[in-house]
């Protein structure tokens, strides 16, 4: 099992890193959510419904960032055939899909009081829904075979090609007339006043660390699963 020589080193790093990410992440999320719900004032025009942004924005970032990580894992798998590439791609897919779903759900809940509709087929919403379907397709794709840790070349290509949707989501509010507003935070600054912005830093950081902890936990579980599988197979062969 020479392929797991490298994962062993990975595990020695991942084991202490997981609780650290989880602990700091949860603390940042709790403080950010408390601040977002109880400390900052209601937004001038939307009132209290604007507070959902402290969940919606990190969820959107992690849904999209998750796919970028998935695409990089796919590329590493295709070019360098690193044994951990497939494992990390499998591990990223489920939390990525989860945060994309949270982004869609919170956006919909915000859309009803703000826009007056739960759902519209505008560019931003449609392309984000496509991202959720891409995640679900990837999860189905990598779970159909016998393989427990690595992913097929086709799945890796799917992950890389699917990344084309990420700049489309990002630019959808610029390229097309859309109901969704343009980005509030750009390289040119923030259109969210500092007084309302600061808890967002905590929730974005917190959810990102939580995402990292999820990925490490899932990678460890996938590696353990593959190890068990290999041992059972060897036992069966020895009879």
């Amino acid at each position: 099992m020479h392929r797991f020589a490298n994962p062993t080193r990975f595990l020695s790093i991942a084991r202490p890193l997981t609780p650290a990410l989880l602990g700091i992440g949860l603390a940042a999320i709790l403080w950010g959510c408390y601040a977002g719900l109880a400390i900052v004032p209601p937004e001038a025009r939307q009132g209290d419904s604007a507070r959902i942004l402290y969940i919606h924005v990190p969820a959107a970032w992690l849904g999209m960032g998750g796919w970028m990580a998935l695409a990089i894992a796919g590329l590493v798998q295709l070019v360098w055939r690193h044994p951990l590439a497939g494992v990390s791609a499998r591990a990223i897919a489920v939390p990525g899909a989860l945060f994309t779903a949270i982004c869609l759900a919170t956006g919909s809940i915000w859309g009803k009081p703000t826009w007056g509709t739960w759902w519209e087929w505008d560019g931003r919403m449609t392309s984000m829904l496509v991202l959720l379907f891409l995640y679900l397709g990837f999860i189905a794709f990598v779970n159909q075979g016998e393989e427990r840790a690595a992913i097929s070349r086709a799945a890796a290509i799917y992950a890389v090609v699917g990344a084309i949707n990420i700049p489309i989501i990002n630019r959808s509010v610029v390229w097309w007339n859309s109901l969704h507003q343009p980005a509030s935070i750009t390289t040119g600054g923030s259109a969210i006043e500092p007084e309302l912005l600061w808890p967002l830093g905590f929730t974005v950081l917190g959810f990102s660390l939580l995402f990292g902890a999820f990925v490490l936990m899932r990678m460890r579980a996938i590696l353990a699963d593959a190890k068990v599988e290999a041992r059972l197979r060897r036992l069966a062969a020895e009879g």
Binding site: V40, E43, R45, Q46, Q181, S184, A191, E193, L196, L197
Partner: peptide
Amino acid sequence: LAKHDERYMA
């Protein structure tokens, strides 16, 4: 439908 812009104000 109302459109919201990117500004969030106190």
